[in-house]
Each structure stands twice: as structure tokens, then as C-alpha cells.
Amino acid sequence: MTATPSSNAPGRFPAGRLAFPHAHLTGIGHLERHEILFLLDAAEHWVELNRRGEKREELLAGRTIINAFFENSTRTLLSFEIAGKRLGADVVNMAAATSSLKKGETLIDTAITLNAMRPDAIVMRHGSSGATQLIAQKVDCPVLNAGDGSHEHPTQALLDALALREALRRRGEGSEDFTGLNVVICGDILHSRVARSNVLCLQAMGAKVRLCAPPALMPAGIEAMGVTPYSDFDAALDGVDVVMMLRLQSERMAGHFIPSEREYHHLYGLTKRRLSAAKPDALVMHPGPMNRGVEIDSEVADMIDRSIITQQVEMGVAIRMACLDVLTRGRRGVEGWA
């Protein structure tokens, strides 16, 4: 690998706060290409740290991070918790089941309550689109969106970009962005915040994005986002460099969007045979947790040279460390960020 540009390289990014002038991370939609690159570069440092035995760097020592999850999560919550702890912060998790929302408190009141405990960052997941933005207006500390409804999940898109960039670089074909790359995202696009954030992120990085879903799971007017929609998965896979599968959210299937899992697999399951329509070395991604045998077959998910699903999880911690670091620089008095 050639010299990796790092966030410290002089002149690569605007100085100090100008490199990332946002108080919160509510979505990829608010970010410029160079701001995305800044976060990815910053995360590379944490990728290295995370691979060492001693994994702590006390940047956020004495700082408090609240993970406010109004919707169930295992891996994202864990990833944020580990990220905060490796930075030395005191991390507190507030899970939906134990929150006072059950007692009728409004989201705004919960936010004001959390704010009164003077956290240094709030990481929030909520079932309603726009919830993070609403809270961000009411609190004094940075708010990181860990998923809001079907709107955005920015750290997922950033970790996907980081994992993809690392994988391409390992092959010696990577540049700093994804210019010329064809990516297909397949699954429940309609309800997927991961899909929306990834469309925005991949496009900002120069990739061409195809989306594939049965018509009932493809949102109206999606072409306006600059993507090419498909309902035929084999056609969508033709010649792509990257296949990103989405989890079939059975809990979101309140209406009957698809007849059965079996039928979904028949039409949209990523099998080894189907993958052969993509480029011979096409990479396979999945934000997890996977429904093996539904949207993705085990023999594809576990392909050592093609699947980067576990690397995505690894990059998740690094990206979240980078985001927590960058967003708290102002209040920590980092030079040029205050």
C-alpha cells in the first residue's frame, strides 16, 4: 500500500474546525465529499489502534457519552459503547425498554432531561425519521445519529465506505474515493435508512449506485436521488464491483410486502450462482445482522476473498471513535476547533 493520506497531512483538508464544521452528525445528506473523506482518514488511525493489544487512548477521559436508544439494537449499541470506552469516556446506555418514554414522557422532555445531566455527546437511535434532528436543536452537546426511522444511519454508511476503501486498497486498486465503481444495493430499500445513507455517501465518493427491490419495497421518486432502480436482481448485478445486501426486516413487514421468505430468496437471495453475474472479484457487503438463507446464502457470506462483512463490523468501531473524537473537539478545546 502506498502512503496513506492521513488527516494530519498538511493542506489535505482545511485547517481545524473548517475541515468538519458540523455540530452534530445527523445524516450524510449534510456532508460534503471532503468532510466524508476527513472522517474516513481520521478513522484509519483508530483502525490501527484497535488492532493493537492496548486499545485505549484517553482522548475523552472524564467525558460522558449517553447512548440513547429508543429502538432495539445490539450491534450498533455495542459498537458505539466500545468506541466511547476505547477513547476513555464514561459511556452510559439508555435502552428503550427502561426509558420513561414508556411512561408517556415526550421525546423532547427526555432530551431535555438527558441534556440536564450534561453529557458531552448523545448517540441516538429512534424509530421516527427526523428524531435526531429534532433533539439536536434542543441539547447543548453533539448528537450522533445512530439511525432515525427510515431516514439516515450515517455511521453505517461511513463504516461501509471505510471497509470498502480498505478492501480495495488491499487489492492495490484503491484510490481515496470510489470513482468509476458500480455498486448495487439490494433489499428493503423503502424502509432502509442504511440504503439512503449509503446512496448519499457512495455517490459523494464518486460511485454509481443501482438499487434493487421488489416494487412494493422501492420508494417512489427514488430516481431523483440519481440512482438506477431495478426489480430484476440478475440484471442489477450485471457487471457490478460491489454487492451490498440489506437485511429483510421481518419486524417491518407489518403489511404483506412479500409473499414469503422462500419466494424472496428465490427472487432476491444472493447465491453463488447469482453472484457470477457481477464482476469476477466483486465484493459482498451486508450491514448485519444477516438472515442466512433469506437475503444471502452462507457460502456467499463466508467467501474469504469476496465477503467483507466482518471487516464492516471492525470498521464500525473505528468510524464511531473518529466521529466521537471529531465532534467533541470543540468542547475539548482542541486547537483550531474551539
Binding site: 427510515s150 431516514h151 421518486g221 431523483a224
Partner: peptide, 21 residues
């Protein structure tokens, strides 16, 4: 309409809002 809060189209799609045609 179901639980829709917006008209189906680019804006609702970008915002990730439940929408109806």
C-alpha cells in the same frame, strides 16, 4: 394511506417518511 405522513415522491423518499401515493 395507512400510517402515511407524506405524499409519495422524492421529498418523502429522501426524508424516509411513511408516504402514500
Amino acid at each position: 394511506v395507512g400510517e402515511a405522513a407524506a405524499t409519495a415522491g422524492e421529498i418523502a423518499t429522501r426524508m424516509g417518511l411513511p408516504s402514500a401515493p
